[in-house]
Design a protein around this nucleic acid. Structure first.
Length: 400
DNA sequence: TTGGGG
């Protein structure tokens, strides 16, 4: 077994390695015939630079899938290569093999995943024990980096890192999967098109089909749940992405705006670092959310300084009711409920006043409401509809 | 073969 610090002295050689996996790229199709994931590995002999291990296998499910932070990978017969100034290892399916082990201290040496040709030797076991013991004292890289931003600070066409919780994954159209991520903050409100004739194109969500209740019911009610698109190069992401429910630092996410909604994209440079619940950056996210709730309640971060909103909303009959978010509405378990929300009006249908009344004299107006957690349609019906709409227009155009 | 990144 070769210590990682010696790898640089053995270019073109095939070697056996063992180390802690501290980062992995999300498996995706390569430009060749295989799926690829790139692991970053450290051991007692070398933590910086982390050794890259480029793994190529034609079945995405057979690529190594890291379950927990500090898990151990044993690599047999990987070839050492050099690219520019970097030395790295290449896993070739025709002659390499791997096994993944739980990194927690134990006397269990059965791997939780292996490549087909892997064979564990008795002589491997002391190396596994040694790494498990070393992990007890080694401080793994925390979630801090110069590129980390919170969802509250994202900008269009910018690559950044996010410390966030992965809430779920779902196929939203053929060959397109979405990760749902959350850090407890709100994405910045976007300016939207106020041309009346174009308002009806306003969408409620990125995805073209309603999400399963099983996904939505896991969404927190405060803070934006951001959609991150994985295109078809990532395959059937839901079947091979195993970090659901975990806090992670995702590196190199790209942000764009579509239909007035934020969405992220996984790129070929996107990578995942699993974080502990006690990681400093994770603890900071949780602390910020607790402080936010105790200071301002369930109010959009962007409205903290917009007193006009509050003035208008006190015209409602439910002044004593605490503010809720639109996600509170969407995840409400009963059939009926009264809520008091701070929202933006992003569209009105019909867009022409002459169309507000049906031939029978009934008014039926649909508005699209938005807060950082969701968009919904709200129907204004009956005799009060025009007055309700007047209040909403005051909100929309700042007439209050 | 593929990949490699601030």
């Amino acid at each position: 077994m070769m210590p990682l610090r010696d790898v640089k002295d053995h270019p073109k050689r095939k070697v056996n390695l063992i180390g802690i996996v501290v980062e992995f790229s999300i498996p995706r199709m390569s430009e060749g015939t295989d799926y690829c994931t790139i692991l970053k590995v450290v051991d007692r002999s070398q933590q910086s630079p982390e050794l890259s291990v480029n793994v190529f296998i034609d079945d995405v499910h057979q690529l190594p899938h890291i379950r927990s932070r500090r898990d151990i990978i044993l690599l047999s017969c990987v070839r050492i290569e050099r690219h520019k100034q970097d030395v790295y290892a290449v896993f070739n399916k025709s002659f390499s093999s791997f096994a993944l082990f739980d990194g927690k201290c134990s006397s269990v040496f059965s791997p939780y995943q292996t490549s087909p040709a892997f064979c564990l030797l008795d002589s491997d076991k002391p190396f596994i024990t040694s790494l498990r013991n070393w992990c007890l004292t080694f401080q793994l890289d925390p979630g801090i980096s110069p590129y980390v931003v919170s969802l509250n600070d994202i900008k269009e066409r910018e690559y950044v890192d996010l410390v966030c919780k992965v809430l779920g994954v779902c196929e939203v159209s053929s060959n397109e999967w979405v990760l749902f991520i959350w850090d407890g903050t709100d994405v910045p409100p976007l300016s939207f098109n106020t041309k009346l004739e174009e308002q009806n194109s306003t969408r409620l969500q990125i995805e073209s089909v309603p999400l399963p209740t099983s996904i939505i019911s896991n969404f927190p009610c405060v803070g934006t749940v951001l959609r991150v698109i994985a295109d078809q190069a990532f395959g059937k992401l839901g079947y091979h992405f195993h970090s659901i429910g975990q806090w992670v630092r995702i590196r190199n996410i790209l942000f764009e705006v579509d239909s007035g909604l934020w969405k992220g994209f996984l790129t070929c440079a996107s990578k995942v670092r699993l974080l502990s619940e006690n990681d400093n950056s994770v603890a900071e996210c949780k602390r910020n959310l607790t402080e936010r709730l105790s200071r301002s309640g369930r109010v959009p971060m962007s409205s903290y300084h917009v007193s006009n909103f509050i003035t208008v909303l006190t015209l409602t009959d439910y002044e004593s009711t605490k503010f809720a978010t639109l996600m509170d509405l969407l995840t409400f378990s009963k059939d009926k409920g009264r809520f008091r929300c701070i929202v933006r009006v992003v569209a009105i249908c019909p867009s022409q006043v002459k169309d507000f009344w049906s031939p029978a004299g009934l008014s039926r107006i649909r508005v699209t409401l938005e807060d950082p957690t969701a968009r919904i349609h709200a129907l204004l019906c009956g005799e009060d509809a025009v007055m309700q709409l007047y209040i909403l227009l005051m909100l929309k155009f700042g007439l209050a």
